[in-house]
Amino acid sequence: MTRQRSERTWICLSLAALVAAALAPLVLAPFYVRVGQLVLYSAALGLAWAILGGFAGYWSFGQSAFIGIGAFVGGLAEAELATAPPALQFLVGLAAGSAACAVIAALLAYPVLRLRGIYFAIAMLGVAHVFAELNNNIDIFQGSLGLTFPNIGIAGLDPHVFYYELFLVAAAATLLAAWLIRRSRFGYGLLSIREDEDTARMLGVPTEHYKAAAFVVSAVIAGVLGLIYAHSLGYITTGSVYRDDTNLNAIVYSLLGGMGTLIGPIIGAAILVVLTHVVLGDFLDFHMFATGLLLVLLVLLAPSGLVGLARKLVGRKKVRR
């Protein structure tokens, strides 16, 4: 009963936030529209990571592999159709990029997901670096030369606003997917894997297939986001999509907001992006130090993230009453 009511409250709040976010560019200065793009992109990436990392407890350190594959495979497919209308190119790129991510993730999933904990995390970092190096050094990928992307915007609309709205659609779709997964049998199966994989198997959870499915879903979303991101930049090289800071941030968003929750990565992404781009925007020399300090404080002071901290505070208040 209360569960249903709180779920309804959350749905209403999310829809209101979605409408507010969609209208925000009307009042925001162009700089903040760009920051907003980055917040939405990061939140969606964080959510995609959380489908495997937050729900099933498999922390990938290599999400950038799929961002890169999505962007480069999609971009190369689009280049084949250089004469077609940009919107059609984009759709073809989307199909090619996500298909490549799905196939590669499915091939990697079974061997890599046999590893647990730190070994999985580091193996994924290795995977991301292998793809990055290959992308950069094999000529057909044009990783070091760079790849240009057509402007797919709508005439008359500021491209920054257009990409903002596109990222918003992507982020909302990711949130919806994560929410549907979280409340499904599949989602509960993933949670049980995070809690105790052997016991989950004993209860009949097909752990291998579930992990692989979560891995593929997470990879495909990352790939789609990578392609949109590439379009928003207009021109990318290996270094613009295969980034170690993306690998790290995908985790930090959940860690900062709350591991395993849906709101966690969104809050985490918003705070981190605003902090580094707005608050510290003028202190570039200070970025790395600030991020590092944030990580240290986070691990020591709020190991269960801001959502966990808030729950704890609310819980304490209730007890006092």
Binding site: I118, A121, L248, I251, V252, L255, M288, F289, T291, G292, L293, L294, L295, V296, L298, V299, L300
Partner: peptide, 10 residues
């Protein structure tokens, strides 16, 4: 592990 990464960045 993340803490040690934060220290490395600093």
């Amino acid at each position: 592990m993340l803490l040690t990464f934060g220290v490395a960045l600093m």
